[in-house]
């Protein structure tokens, strides 16, 4: 798979994953781009064929984690020196994220923020660009079944957090599970 296709496959879930780690959406975009370039430049160190999505996915996630961690450390150091500029960046990012948000959408985003880490990650990775469950699973290094299970749990948690009774179909699924 060429680089363009790999970017197309993993862009959405990677940005979603980095956002789930706690980065702002602007930072998540930057970190994801850095991670793609880093993973590509250091592809010789990748164990296996980097063109294979099943190999490239976990490799990309590992690189992204290191880049995110290093950026976090650098940010902390910078924050100690320049406090004001960071606030400006945050303020600049806010209007993009909050644009056209209705009360229901804000409540839903708030509920997503309150999801447990694993559930929040799969929700953001899957729904951001409607990425296939198999690609999310490849990036996370887990099975598609596991991703489906987390998505299902996440939807139930979200419904509860939003104060709604589960839909009939949901109740039926729960009963079937029992």
């Amino acid at each position: 798979m060429p680089l363009a296709e790999l970017i197309d496959t993993f862009r959405g879930p990677l940005v979603g994953l980095i956002a789930a780690w706690g980065a702002s959406w602007v930072d998540a975009n930057e970190i994801a781009q850095d991670s793609f370039s880093e993973a590509y430049l250091r592809r010789s160190a990748c164990r296996g064929d980097w063109r294979d999505p099943a190999v490239f996915g976990p490799w990309l996630r590992g690189v992204a984690r290191n880049v995110h961690r290093n950026r976090g450390r650098a940010d902390r150091r910078r924050r100690l020196r320049i406090v004001a500029s960071d606030k400006v960046v945050q303020a600049a990012a806010a209007p993009i994220e909050m644009a056209a948000a209705t009360e229901r959408v804000l409540a839903l985003r708030d509920a997503i923020e309150r999801l447990p880490a694993k559930q929040r990650a799969v929700v953001l990775m899957h729904y951001l660009e409607e990425t296939r469950v198999a690609d999310v699973a490849a990036l996370l290094g887990v099975t598609a079944k596991a991703v489906e299970g987390r998505l299902y749990q996440a939807r139930r948690t979200l419904t509860r957090l939003l104060g709604e009774a589960p839909a009939r179909t949901e109740v039926g699924r729960v009963l079937l599970c029992l």
């Binding site: 970017i7 781009q33 793609f36 939807r155």
Partner: peptide, 28 residues
């Protein structure tokens, strides 16, 4: 319907595919 709501809630946060790829290639 709930899935649609979720997608709608997150859609504004989607990265721009063209800009994203250009950013990656520039970095490379």
């Amino acid at each position: 319907a709930f899935g649609k709501e979720l997608r709608d809630a997150i859609r504004p946060l989607r990265p721009d595919p063209t800009g994203f790829e250009a950013g990656v290639r520039d970095r490379i």
